[in-house]
Design a binder for these strands. Structure first.
Lengths: 160, 160
DNA sequence: GAAAATACCGCAGAATATGCTGGTTTAATT
DNA sequence: AATTAAACCAGCATATTCTGCGGTATTTTC
């Protein structure tokens, strides 16, 4: 028994299904079947298998940032003064419970973090940043405020 | 007649629907209706209206980065030497047609860009970066390779 | 070349989506 | 405060879709 999970190879049809679903997560099974030149039954079987095998992690509605008043976006680079376990634990706990932080990546050697912060306006941003720098262990930080979104690609690249 | 588009106010039920859909984009309408204490018909009416009014932009399947072999992630900070229109145009054209660049934000005063690059391995990254720095007008750049994803929140914050 | 496994299709019953109607509540106007 | 108008909701009916099952064809394995 191998260490890696059984990972069946995907044929052209599987890839076409994945691509279709990541572009339209609510397509009906009959239409999906038409699109990949299959009848509904085997198409559904494949979708179920792709879900069970973990290729599809979930389905989500994308909501409008503008309409819901969360269109101000900032990237924040944060350095911790040490990579000490308890410092990181405190930092992570704060990040996780701050809903405006929508993404947090540990980068480079373990002291630096890149956050993506989504807020409605500068006032809210100032408050989030204020709380952030008060976390013990937080050293330098730098804000990159987003002026214009040049490209955004939800979805992975699929070579058909 | 006002300049802003008609934007009806959302009540508690609308917000509950949006929240449910951004957590499970494939929930059936009857189950969604149960969840928000409505009968199916008015629930579907509301969903349709939320879509028409632009609160819901689309539905997408989230695919596994690991399973599809695109699990290496880098943030790249790039500065252009001038904000000259033609320099930016060339830059943007290159970004848009490079599938590994999944996100590109113009930040700060207009010379700096933050890219998010998704690749399968370091070889592919080296190639993407090589092509990037060859674009005329590209000055300094710095790579933040992601070691660990601390937090990732797809979906917006909804106060019920 | 035979046997087994796999993938596909069509069909049928169950579940769901969706348009329509009528009744109720809420809000606006006089 | 009464009347009108508007919005909203539930229930029903029809059309569509989902989904499991059995049968057939194709591919793989021995």
């Amino acid at each position: 028994m191998s260490l890696t999970a059984k990972s069946r190879t995907l044929d052209r049809i599987d890839l076409a299904i994945l691509d279709a679903l990541q572009k339209n997560g609510r397509i009906s099974n009959v239409n999906l079947a038409k699109q990949v030149n299959l009848s509904p039954s085997p198409c559904l079987d494949r979708v179920k298998r792709l879900e069970a095998d973990g290729f599809i992690e979930g389905y989500y509605a994308k909501l409008s940032e503008q309409k819901l008043n969360q269109s101000l976006l900032a990237h924040v680079q944060v350095s911790l003064v040490t990579s000490n376990t308890s410092v990181f634990k405190t930092f992570k706990e704060h990040i996780v419970k701050t809903p405006q932080v929508v993404e947090c990546d540990m980068v480079a050697g373990g002291y630096d973090y890149l956050l993506k912060v989504r807020v409605s306006d500068m006032n809210e941003y100032r408050q989030v940043l204020g709380d952030l720098v008060d976390i013990p262990g937080v050293g330098t930080h730098h804000t990159y405020m987003v002026i214009e979104k040049v490209k955004e690609d939800t979805g992975l690249r699929i070579d058909l």
